[in-house]
């Protein structure tokens, strides 16, 4: 859990984390938004499904991988939030949906 510091803000940027509205300060990363939203973990690993949260917040550890605006496995600590950005937790390996080849 994370909260706004004393005399911090204003948290004027509204994003959507797992379907719920969250407000962050301008310049906050998508990873910060997930932490501000109160989620303990931001992803489940593709190896064992273990829950992970950001460890380094600077683009080194890759534990902050999240789905942002529909694109999976992004380093959310390196993505700056923008109004109405949709962030979802990354659950395991990415799903692939190749187009159906036959005209059905």
């Amino acid at each position: 859990m994370f909260r706004l510091r004393r005399n911090g803000g204003p948290a004027s940027v509204a994003v959507v984390v797992e379907g719920a509205l969250v407000h962050v300060v301008p310049g906050a990363s998508a990873a910060a938004a997930v932490l501000a939203a109160g989620f303990a973990s931001i992803r489940e690993t593709p190896v064992t499904g273990a829950g992970r949260a950001p460890y380094c917040m600077m683009g080194v550890c890759y534990d902050c991988l999240a789905e942002i605006d529909g694109i999976p496995n992004q380093q959310s600590c390196m993505v700056e939030t923008r109004a109405s950005m949709r962030i979802r937790r990354q659950l395991g390996a990415r799903q692939l949906d190749p187009p159906n080849q036959h005209n059905e």
């Binding site: 994370f2 510091r5 962050v24 310049g27 906050a28 990363s29 910060a32 501000a36 917040m57």
Partner: peptide
């Protein structure tokens, strides 16, 4: 970094 860039503690 969270404190600096997101005002979060």
């Amino acid at each position: 970094i969270l404190l600096k860039s997101a005002d979060l503690i």
